Every structure is written in structure tokens, then in C-alpha cells.
Amino acid sequence: MSLTQSSTPSDTSGTLDEALERLHSFGPEREGWLSNHAPMAVEALVRHGQAPGVHRWIDHYRGRLEDMPVPFAEVTPENWREALGDPRRIADWTRFFVRETEERPWRAVLAEWWPRLLPGIAAGATHPVIRVGHAVRTLLDTEENAPRVAELAHGLGYWAARHQPLPELSAQAPAADAAAALDAVARVPDQSGGIRARLGQLTAFPVWPDRAVTGPDAARERLEELVRAATHRYETHGHGEPTMLVHAATAPNAVLRTLPALPGGLWAPSLDAAWAASAAVTAAYAPERPREPVPDGVVPTAEELFARAAAHGDDHTIKFTDTALDVGDPRALAAALRSVEMNPPTL
């Protein structure tokens, strides 16, 4: 079973480009580590027919935005290794990738840097890879232009500056499928701290897939399976932390969205990193017990559901509903309904 394709952007007014240009004067974080979700949310809003409300949404979100940090020291092809994972270099990394994507095709830049950044997929609570996934989806589905390529540069720059490898992990027993693997992920012992403290407690994950993945097509199919399983799981387990647990699905979906822009040889490593990211978020925030599924007959249509998410206004809810619509089946829509119900509205 493959994921359904989400709708292509219906906006012909230039709203997305205006929004991205407006947002590129701001940094990717606020208060030192909280992520700026606006570029990702507005991409999803435009894609699902909500372009008329985008600027109003940004106006409301404006209080969460901070200016781009001041430059610290230039990142170059010679010194990039020492700058990797240094959050003081956010502006420097962003400038580096803006230059790179102005001078070379964005696909070439992505193919070069994806394997360098992939081991740090947990960076910024997985927000950088999610931002890259939204940017690549737009570039693949629509006309390339300066604001859309610049958005990819901003996402890559954020990822490089926050690059964060997971701890060395041992292997637990293999799991037969993605759902079973997520069920077998052990909760971290101390769930009192933030995500960085929680990720530092990781020691082992179940082996999944339970056999070697050979070839790009198999990697894509397993990644689709993971996105589906993580989205479904939110319906019954999202209450563990309704905001943070959306990333167990949206992070691997960002990787899935990026695959078509990557050489086939990078697809299997991308699957491995996506599994690690989804499992890490699951371990960090999973509840002790599941809750009952959404009752039959109460889930609206996909279009109605995304309209509810847009009216709700919460950035994580918008992005998770966007991923649920990619999956497209009744359980995924029920999970999206849960995100609307559990996350506090902002509009």
C-alpha cells in the first residue's frame, strides 16, 4: 500500500512566495532553541487551499519570530566540519547555503549535503529536516524560483547549525513491521526534561526493518510504512505529549518527500535515519498506556479536516494534518482529528 499523493498547490496569487520572502528575514528559532514553524505551516496551508488566510496567520504568529542572528564566522568549503552543529553559526550556515544554491542547482547541493546532515537528523527536535522536506516538496511540485530555493537554503542552514547525532545505540530484537517496532520502543526513564535531555537517555532500538533493504523502491516502501504506522499511532498514543509526538510521523514524512530529489543510493540510508528519528521521538514522549480510538462516524472528510486544522491555527496541528492527508486512510484522518482536539488552538 502506498501513501496517497497530497494535493498540489492551488495558489496562483504568489502568496507562498510572498510569505517565504516575508519570513526569510527572521531566524529559524526563538528563545535560543524553540523552532520557527512558519515556513512549514504556510507551505501546507497554501498546498491545501488555504492561501487566502496565510498572511493573517503570519500576522498572528509574528510574536513568535525573532530576527536572524548576527553572523559569527563565515562557513566555507574548507571549514564546514568545525562549524557543523554550532548553533552560533545559524546565520553563517544560512548564508553558506544561499550562496551554494545560487551558484549550483539545488538538487546538486542537496545530494552533496544530505548524507553529511543525515546523521544529525534529531537536530532541533527534527524541525530542520521537516523544514527541508516542505521546501523540497514545493520545488518538486511547482516552478523553481528564488524564494522557494532560498527556503531550502534556510532549512539546510538550520539543520547544519543544529546538527545533533543520537547516542550510540545497541540493537534490540527485530520487529516484523513498523507498527510493531514503534510499539516495542522503550520509553526513556526520566521524562521530566526537554527533548535534548531525553534523547541523551536513549540506549537501544528494535531492529527494523527486520531484514536488509535492497534497492531504492524497497526503501521507499518501508518508509511509507513507517510514516503510516507513526501517523496511526498518534491516534491512540499522541496524548503522551500532543505537540512533540507529531514529529514521530512528520520527520520520516519529510524524508519521504525528499527521496525523489535524491540519488537512489541515498534512499536506504535515509530510511535508517528516518526510523531512528521516529523511534527517538517515540521513546522520548510515549505515554504509559494508549487511549481508545476515535469513535466511528465522527471523522470529517480530508478537506473538512484540513479546514478545521487551519482554523485551529496551531502550527504542529497544521503540519501533522498535512502528513495525515498524505497517508489518507481513515485511521490517519482520525489521528489528525485527535491532533486538532488535543493541541491548544492559536487562532
Rank of each mutant, 00 (worst) to 15 (best):
T203R: 15
E144G: 08
V213Q: 15
E143G: 07
Q191C: 02
V149Y: 07
E144L: 10
A184W: 09
V188M: 09
D141N: 03
V149P: 05
P209E: 01
Q164G: 05
A153Q: 10
P206G: 07
L156M: 06
A186S: 12
A180H: 06
A176P: 04
L152V: 03
T214S: 13
A180N: 10
P216F: 06
A219F: 10
L156E: 07
E151I: 02
L140A: 03
T214F: 12
A178G: 14
R196E: 04
L169I: 06
L139H: 04
R220Y: 10
E151Q: 15
A186P: 06
T214E: 15
R148Q: 14
A184L: 10
N145V: 01
A186M: 11
G157P: 02
F205K: 13
E151A: 13
D141H: 05
D141K: 01
D217P: 07
P174K: 08
A150S: 10
Q172K: 13
W208G: 06
A161I: 05
F205D: 15
E151C: 09
L169S: 01
P206T: 07
W208K: 03
W159S: 05
Q191W: 05
L182G: 04
G155T: 09
V185R: 10
A181Q: 13
D183G: 08
L140H: 04
T142A: 12
P216A: 15
V207N: 13
L202M: 03
G194Y: 15
P189A: 14
A175H: 13
A204L: 12
T138R: 10
P216R: 10
A176H: 12
A186G: 04
G157S: 01
E143F: 02
G155D: 12
A176D: 14
T214V: 13
P206R: 09
Q164C: 01
G157R: 01
G193E: 09
I195K: 01
Q191I: 00
S192Y: 01
A181P: 11
G215D: 03
A184Q: 12
T214M: 11
E144T: 04
R198C: 12
A204K: 09
T203Q: 15
G193C: 04
A219E: 11
P174E: 10
T138F: 08
G200N: 12
A175P: 12
A146H: 08
A171F: 11
G157L: 02
A212W: 09
A150Q: 13
R196P: 05
H154P: 11
V207L: 15
A161N: 07
D217A: 12
A173K: 13
E168M: 07
R196I: 00
F205C: 14
V185H: 09
A161G: 07
G157Y: 02
